[in-house]
Design a protein around this nucleic acid. Structure first.
Lengths: 223, 223
DNA sequence: CTGGAACGGAATGCCTTGTTCCGTTGACAG
DNA sequence: CTGTCAACGGAACAAGGCATTCCGTTCCAG
């Protein structure tokens, strides 16, 4: 392997140590891709995708569960960041569109939601989940205040809408992204329309989606 | 064996034989529910759900694969039936709405699509798949001819739309159905809207979804 | 040249799951 | 009442998959 940055100003980017550091990112990317395609994929698939051995992976992450938790939490943080960034848009509607588009493009929602429940979430993750809810609520409220969002839409709808977009899935990732934008376009048209025929049934309630964050093995009741 | 309907009009509904016949339906229903919730569920889960032993299941179906094939094909037939029934509606738009609503309610699409690819499809199934495509095309074309369907929507969109609806999934099946109708409502509003901002990207092409019907083992890169 | 951090990937042991096997049950004929 | 046998329940079995560990190898650093 030829050196590309021998003794440069950037620390830790050459030699064995630099290789290792670069592997950090490669492995995380590979894990994201693999577990996005199949949340139950074996660890070995991640290693193969990253082009490294299994030990390179276990050197960085104590267990599969820890890796999943990390990916899930990263996704949640990204989700939060996009919700915050929506406030930068000039109008509430633009903020909503931007938020949805970004989250769908990055497949952040699948990453977070489909992985949640496969492990006991940390207290911090639960806090972040609450926070993300608040931020999304702000995005939705602002868009509704604009008057361009039909008024029978609630915050909880966003999560389910994102999930339905994430279900669009083709072998080719780029084509997948294109088509998801297409269906997001249809959804947005539906969300922007006057609430002429009102949506049927009661809207999703506050706690109705919380079960995702509960460990799937664990039993029933908790706050 | 002498027939036993001599005493009544309903044949084969008493005694051991009647019990067995009833189990046929119970097992198939259980299998539908279980594999709908998780296509990779073990056979034992189906037996448990049906409240029967494993042998009762293996008496009727040679293998798990055969059972899956049966479920998948049944779903495909139901899909076809609904597409045909759409022609009964007075307008093309009504036909489309009815078709989508029925298919979403019965979760027929998940059953068929999520199971396809886990086994080599029979020639008859492939024929039926082609036929279902033609029928759905007729439904869409008729709706578009009405002028109430935005004209940048193509037949292939329907499959993906259904898939996105099927992604809405809660622990409670009834609530799931309610919410799916809700999102179908949003989608329909989007489909009915004037194609004011045209949908981005090229629409899904004819063969772009055919990979689902190919056996999943052959498709990937590990060979 | 040499120590050791980082690594590749085979080996290990556990767990899941499809399928088979066998003893039991109970409706029905005699 | 009793023998028979289709239908059954569910334990046993075997194969395979997978997380994790272990060990010999590589190759940068000093």
């Amino acid at each position: 392997m030829p050196e590309e940055n021998a003794s440069g100003a950037v620390p830790g980017l050459s030699g064995r140590r630099g290789q290792a550091q670069r592997n950090d990112a490669v492995i995380l990317d590979a894990a994201r891709e693999v577990f996005l395609a199949d949340p139950r994929a074996p660890i070995s698939a991640v290693a193969a995708r990253a082009g490294v051995g299994i030990s390179a992976l276990y050197r960085r992450h104590a267990s599969k569960e820890e890796l999943l938790r990390r990916l899930c939490h990263d996704g949640l943080r990204r989700f939060i960041a996009e919700a915050e960034a929506a406030a930068d848009e000039p109008t509430g509607w633009d903020g909503l569109v931007r938020f949805l588009t970004r989250v769908v493009d990055a497949d952040v929602h699948s990453l977070t939601v489909r992985l949640a429940g496969t492990f006991p979430p940390t207290a911090e993750m639960r806090r972040d989940a609450v926070r993300s809810n608040e931020l999304v609520a702000a995005v939705v409220d602002r868009a509704r205040a604009d008057g361009r969002l039909r008024d029978d839409v609630v915050v909880q709808d966003v999560g389910l809408l994102l999930e339905s977009c994430a279900a669009i899935r083709l072998p080719d990732p780029d084509r997948t992204k294109e088509l998801r934008r297409r269906y997001l376009g249809i959804l947005l048209a539906g969300l922007a329309a006057a609430a002429d025929p009102p949506l049927p049934g009661p809207p999703p309630a506050a706690g109705e989606l919380a079960w995702r964050w509960r460990s799937r093995a664990a039993a029933t009741d908790d706050a």
